[in-house]
Nucleic acid binder design. Structure first.
Lengths: 208, 208
DNA sequence: TTTTGTATGTTGCAAAAACAACGTCCTTTA
DNA sequence: TAAAGGACGTTGTTTTTGCAACATACAAAA
């Protein structure tokens, strides 16, 4: 069966005119594979740049976060994996995919430009999500803490530098610069952080 | 000059191996155009599905919001338009692009599948972006106004209903319920909105 | 060197928001 | 019908933030 016949029947591609789909499928690399119950389809950390369309069957999406917690979701027929197309983020599959029934897959290999575009978009979304995380905190102090903790997590250690100056950080957190400076002072006074200019240290043993 | 030679020199595509870029460029539709100062490159509302790479020069991005306000940003050489790739959202260009200098553009026409993938991702981002738009407003009043204007825009008319109750709306906007109620009152007192329960009317002729 | 400019930190005051408490309206339920 | 509960709006008080002004430190330019 030709690839475009598969694609035509996938909800995700339904809006695309059949003629165009047929044309496109000439340049697409793809692969069709079957999996038995219990099989691992993709492993978290695998090479990305791939989109998996579940043609039939059912799968489980298992995502391990850095604090060892597991997050599970379902993938049903006619859905695509990864749901957020995050495969493009760092070219790594962000979750493990496991068949819970006999499952048929169509894998579509993304070309470099599509990957780049998706990756770009994904990184922008990530930035929005992260900023939202900070902005939803009530006080300036909590916004700052949220930001500092995120930066420490990114750096992978308690000591890190930031590239924004105070005004830029204040704008990013939607607070007033001088008020923010005051809160930085308070956080240091309370032993939660130590900072000098753009160098910060998050005091780990503070239970905040 | 071959398209892949252009692409090689664009920051956005720098990470892509040259060999692959050359291969890809065979299947890409593209167009190169020059614009003089003051020329309109793209109009808000134009057919989407296109990415514009500014090879040289400088442009102005002018976005008209529904309340006639204008939002301006710059587009510099080696940047791509639209910045958020929102062209894929409803297949419409989201802002007008105007050359402020002599500018050289490379247009890349996206294929249907790439468009669909970007569109899918964009719709997932939209909710975050929209909430950020509201949360970045300084006062409770402005957050409310931003939300109300967005709802009116979605409804396509000045009268609309919302599905959230007051507490949910307050949580969404990260403000305090009673303070928000007070601001709703004030907005109504000032003739900017009329509301009763979950039914709102945005008064068009208020210059806010 | 002096001067200038810029980023940061500090302080006092005014404005805004959070909070608590209460009143009203409306719906549900006994 | 009466009672109870919930959502919404209002008001007064407390807390936080924004704002303006100024101080300090440091780097760049004259």
């Amino acid at each position: 069966m030709k690839i475009h016949k598969y694609l035509e029947n996938i909800d995700f591609f339904k809006e695309i005119p059949k003629k165009e789909l047929k044309e496109l499928s000439k340049n697409l690399k793809f692969k069709e594979l079957d999996y038995s119950m219990g099989d691992t389809v993709l492993n978290q950390g695998d090479e990305g740049g791939i989109i998996a369309v579940l043609l039939s069957g059912k799968c489980r999406i298992i995502q391990k976060t850095n604090d060892e917690a597991e997050n599970q979701q379902e993938l049903n027929a006619n859905e695509i994996f990864p749901p957020e197309l995050s495969c493009t983020a760092n070219n790594k599959i962000a979750a493990t995919l496991q068949a819970v029934q006999y499952s048929k897959f169509l894998f579509i290999y993304l070309d470099a430009i599509t990957k780049k575009l998706l990756s770009y978009m994904y990184s922008r979304n990530r930035a929005s999500e992260e900023r939202l995380l900070h902005l939803t905190k009530k006080s300036t102090r909590d916004k700052l803490l949220s930001f500092i903790q995120a930066e420490a997590a990114k750096a992978g250690k308690n000591q890190f530098s930031i590239s924004m100056n105070r005004q830029q950080l204040a704008d990013y957190l939607c607070v007033e610069r001088s008020a923010m400076c005051l809160q930085l002072s308070n956080l240091q006074r309370d032993g939660i952080i130590i900072y000098d200019k753009n160098n910060f240290t998050l005091n780990k043993n503070s239970n905040e």
